[in-house]
């Protein structure tokens, strides 16, 4: 059958969100070279995140964290058959475009890297490749979804090996969705009005600077969108969340997951899957940890399996109980 080229549609919402759905029930692992990527693939990872350094090392070394060297990303892409994701800085359109050109399968616009833009995230609808973004609460999740994210993950607190923040973010999002269900349309619209405040900050700052009044619904405030259009878009997403009782995109857990039991915990709390950053390759036995976490995610409600796979796999990453810099506060 001959198909007319114009009937072929790339990068539609269905294709982007569909990609994220194929990752469900899976573990996505941070890797820094081809060898690690192959270990992850053999252990049953559904995808790998190609990085220059794992978050624990980014945290330890300080300085500005940027997109990984494209050469490393390409080597990883050549080494495995599973999807390869890579991180760009928040709001760094050029890094994101470069990653898309490289052919990565998903871009993580991530707070783990140093943000490039304090006002805005990337307009992800303008890309063919799907994006995942972090969120601590419903407002952040809904804004990212409106911007075109095909997948949400909790921010947690990357590089700490401490699951507490990921749990907090998952609980906050779940609770917010439950609260949303009790609201009528007018109340929901007010939530939408509150959620868009982040988009006004730049316009407000400038108007105040120039002493020329307030931001109105007709003002273009982000990319080509007026404030009114953003409110309508956010309102529509909120109505959909109310109706289906969950986020309209896949929601993974990330940021501090270090053990099979941590991964199982996040699944019990309703995560669709899990990102493991430093937890695999900062443990004493990466292969054993990778396999055990994959099995714990699949069998999260079979506690004897979680117990079994946790046996004798060596030491988990050391972890941090207190940390002076909270990466999660980046990009709200």
């Amino acid at each position: 059958m001959k198909i007319k080229l114009e009937e072929l549609r790339f990068g539609t919402e269905l294709v982007k969100r569909g990609f994220a759905k194929m990752q469900k029930g899976g573990v996505i692992m941070d890797v820094t070279n081809a060898e690690q990527a192959m270990i992850a693939e053999d252990a049953g990872a559904v995808a790998v995140m190609a990085l220059h350094k794992v978050p624990a090392d980014i945290r330890a070394s300080g300085g500005v964290a940027r997109m990984a060297d494209p050469k490393i990303i390409e080597e990883i892409m050549d080494a495995v058959t599973i999807p390869v994701m890579a991180k760009c800085r928040i709001g760094h359109i050029a890094e994101a475009k470069a990653l898309e050109a490289l052919g990565v399968d998903m871009i993580d616009e991530s707070e783990v890297l140093t943000p490039a833009d304090t006002f805005f995230h990337v307009d992800k609808r303008k890309f063919t490749v799907p994006f995942v973004c972090g969120a601590r609460n419903l407002g952040e999740a809904v804004r990212r979804i409106w911007e075109g994210a095909a997948m949400i993950r909790t921010k947690g607190e990357a590089g700490t090996g401490n699951v507490v923040e990921a749990v907090k973010h998952m609980r906050i999002i779940n609770r917010s969705i439950a609260e949303l269900k009790n609201l009528n349309e007018e109340q929901t619209y007010n939530v939408a009005r509150k959620f868009v405040e982040r988009y006004i900050e730049l316009a407000k700052l400038v108007k105040e600077d120039l002493g020329i009044g307030f931001v109105s619904d007709g003002d273009v405030v982000y990319e080509e969108y007026t404030l009114g259009e953003i409110i309508d878009g956010i309102f529509e997403i909120l109505l959909e969340i109310k109706k289906i009782g969950r986020l309209p995109v896949v929601n993974f857990a990330a940021g501090g997951i270090a053990t099979p039991a941590d991964a199982a915990l996040m699944m019990i709390l309703g995560a669709d899957g899990v990102f493991v950053g430093s937890g695999i390759f900062k443990s004493s036995n990466p292969e054993a940890y990778a396999r055990a976490i994959v099995e714990a995610v699949q069998n999260y409600d079979d506690h004897s399996v979680v117990a079994e796979v946790s046996k004798g796999i060596g030491d988990a990453m050391k972890g941090l109980d207190v940390f002076k810099e909270r990466l999660q506060e980046r990009g709200v």
Binding site: M1, R9, F10, L14, F19, M22, G103, T128
Partner: peptide, 24 residues
């Protein structure tokens, strides 16, 4: 890879024209 993923109207025997989503 993913950026080459697409949807298209496909003709399937016994079923007819069908919106098919191809992902990797």
């Amino acid at each position: 890879r993913q950026k080459e993923s697409f949807q298209v109207k496909l003709n399937i025997k016994y079923i007819g024209e069908f919106e098919a989503v191809f992902i990797r």
